[in-house]
């Protein structure tokens, strides 16, 4: 039905002798939320970092809008429309919240639309609005996570990739962040979400992949995986 915006074929990632990702295939469909779940060290971050060009030692194809992009550097990937809210937030601690957001739109020349997007992300995260002049490093962990997502959105990406946005957040904030992800989808954007919080991720995802030590062991519609006994036992902590 919907077409594939980002196609990953036989992706392998190596760190020296470590073979972290072992030939995985992932399709990210336009306008959908695709999620990648898996335990610590499964290779989720390696996959996202490969897509965005931060990992260079990789094999396989990454095809975005029908074009091979696996050779591109991060700045070129981001300009082409894929943004990442990275693992561990990685906001700039020595810049103000406002400057962090401006950095998100660094490469953009469409000043008027950047302004509009700024208004939009501040509406998504009203807490940031009150703290525009505050240094990024002085924000609370939860606020930093919001800033990381907001900053990625400032690139006006077609695909928003998020690496464990709920990590270390209180339940109420997790709810807020997942609410924002749904709103981002409603805006017509495509989302690739990496999560450890499998229950929350699968419940909003259209499609999910389960990664285990570098291999995809399961895939299916979000609701189907949520009901899958194996997933329930391994990732949702349910005794079946």
């Amino acid at each position: 039905m919907s077409d594939v915006l980002l196609e990953i074929k036989k992706l392998n990632v190596f760190y020296g002798a470590i073979h972290a990702v072992k030939g995985i295939d992932i399709d990210v469909k336009k306008g959908e939320i695709t999620t990648l779940i898996g335990a610590n060290g499964a290779g989720k971050t390696s996959t996202l970092n490969s897509i965005v060009g931060l990992v260079r030692n990789k094999k396989g194809n990454i095809i975005y809008k029908g074009k091979e992009v696996s050779h591109l550097k991060p700045d070129a990937i981001v300009k082409s429309g894929i943004a990442l809210a990275p693992e561990g937030r990685r906001i700039f601690p020595n810049l103000t919240v406002e400057e962090n957001l401006q950095m998100g739109a660094f490469f953009r020349k469409d000043v008027a639309e950047v302004k509009r997007d700024l208004k939009w992300v501040l509406e998504l995260f009203p807490r940031l609005k009150e703290r525009l002049k505050q240094m990024g490093g002085t924000l609370s962990g939860g606020e930093q996570q919001m800033l990381a997502i907001a900053r990625a959105l400032m690139a006006n990406p077609q695909i928003l990739m998020m690496d464990e946005p709920s990590l270390g957040l209180a339940p109420l904030l997790v709810k807020e962040v997942f609410g924002v992800i749904k709103r981002v989808k409603r805006e017509g954007k495509t989302v690739l979400l990496v999560e450890q919080n499998a229950a929350a991720a699968l419940s909003i995802a259209d499609y999910g992949y389960v990664l285990e030590t570098g291999n995809i062991v399961l895939k299916g519609k979000g609701k189907e995986l949520l009901a899958n006994d194996e997933v329930r036992r391994a990732y949702l902590g349910v005794t079946v």
Partner: peptide
Amino acid sequence: TKTGTAMRAIATDIPTTSLMGANV
């Protein structure tokens, strides 16, 4: 300026600055 902001960003985090679409 934007370039100056990027210079200050690079000072703490080069890979993340490149994630902003900046040519580091």
